[in-house]
Every structure is written in C-alpha cells, then in structure tokens.
Nucleic acid binder design. Structure first.
Lengths: 121, 121
DNA sequence: TTACAATACATTGATTTACAATATATTATA
DNA sequence: TATAATATATTGTAAATCAATGTATTGTAA
C-alpha cells in the first residue's frame, strides 16, 4: 500500500530535474524523453509530460522547434535556453547536496527517547 | 520562479523516506523530526508532518506511545513496527537505485536531434 | 488565582501536480 | 477509403504539501 506510494513520491520528486537533464544533453521530442526515463526506471506518462514541458517553456527554461518526421506527424524538439542551462546547474548542485544530506541521515546512529531527551530545553 | 519549485519537488519526494529513516534510528516526537530535518536542509512544517505520521501509522509502519514532558503537554513518541522496518529496507534500496539511475542520467553524453534520430522506427 | 507564554497535537481550505482517460490531427498502409 | 501508428494536447480526479488556525496542557509572572 503505502510503500509504493512513498516510492512513487521519490520518483515524482526528480521528474523535472531528470527531464531537464535529458534535454540538456541534446534535442529530444517527448517520446524520446519517455523512452529515456523508462530506461532509468523512472516512468512518466504523456499526460504528465506535456503539461510539464509547457510549464518549463513558460518559465523560460526551454524552447522547441518543429521537425518533420518520416513516419507520422511533426514533432516538437525541445532545447534548453541559456536560462535553462543556468537553472539546471543550480538543480544539479541541489541534487548533490540533497543526496549527501539524505545519505547522511540514513546512516546515523540509533537513539532512544530516554537517552536523547536533552534536545528539549 | 520555477527553479525553486523544482527544488521543492525534489525535497518533497524524499520526505516520507527521511522521516521513516529518522524514526528507525530511535524514538522521536514530531518536534525532534522537524529539527533533524531542518539540520539536513529538508524543512517540513507541522501541518505536513502530523497528517504524514498519521498516514504511516494507519499503514501499519509506525506506532507511538505517550511520554510525559517536564515542560509542556505530553508528547507522542513514534517508533517503527516490524512492518515499518521491512518497508524502510525496501525504500533504502529504492533510494540507492534511484540515485544511481539519476546520477547516470545526468552524466550522459550530449546528442543532437540530427545524429540521434535512429531511435525512431 | 488569574492571565499569559511556550509547547504540542491537530484540522481546514487552497493550490499544485501526476495520472488515467480521452480528444484531435497527421502519415503510412491495407 | 478505412485503419493503424504516431504525436500533441486537454479534462477531471485524487493525493499531498502548505499556510493559517484551533484546541489543549504546563509553567511563570502579575
């Protein structure tokens, strides 16, 4: 029940960061993103991705250009703006700091209420 | 604008995991959790924490016991159930796998739409 | 003894967002 | 001409965090 929800929360938290990371590595259209995320075991649905890309574009972090396809309708290829690159650099730093903090948090020693109560003033 | 929101999403994603981690290390009451999270730069408000703890208790992962305080009303000290410990072990594994996946994702080479288009069939 | 401050548990309403389902449009193929 | 595959996009629902506020207990000071 709840554990799957917690796992889901963890994955949701890094969605935007990962998508920015993918786009920074090169032009992609939405299906590319879905596929790359799937390979990383971070599944995302189109109904989630499209509004998210629109959000990031409206925030000035992304742009897109239409590219004709030989096997279907034209595609929106997304690219990072300069603002987007700067934002990603900040997010990468945030990611590193957060993982360090969480890793530390999960490795701390065990206490009991009785011997750790001095925290209260 | 949006970058703070993305940072916030990242932190939200690990809230439950971190709180379970803290409780697994020893009995704590909510204010302890707020303080420990703050030290890890993962701020959480009481309005978020109380429903979350209730959720985890209803899911069978936590229990609590009342402990009298010398400086205020009695406190609910939370402890892990056996089920909670098992769930945390799974989540720790999920966390490790996810960070590995995200770290790989952020370190991949750069492509362009032109030279990576073979992904389409 | 009364009032106030500090501490602690708890709820409510608003906002955000992921998801499932579905809609619309284009291209190739049967 | 109809169908399948591909692609962009929207709608309604559910879940969860947050800010604000409420309720209760204890100690201290007037």
């Amino acid at each position: 029940m709840d554990i799957q929800n917690t796992q889901s929360q963890m994955r949701k938290g890094v969605l935007e960061f990962c998508i920015l990371s993918i786009i920074q590595q090169g032009e992609v259209y939405p299906s590319d993103i879905v596929e790359k995320m799937k390979l990383a075991n971070l599944h995302i649905l189109e109904g989630t991705l499209y509004p998210l890309l629109t959000r990031l574009k409206n925030a000035g972090l992304l742009n897109y250009r239409w590219v004709e396809s030989i096997s279907g309708p034209p595609r929106k290829y997304f690219v990072m703006t300069e603002e987007g690159k700067a934002a990603f650099a900040v997010l990468l730093q945030t990611w590193k700091e957060m993982t360090t903090a969480v890793d530390q948090l999960t490795q701390e020693k065990t206490n009991t209420a009785e011997n750790s109560n001095q925290a209260v003033s």
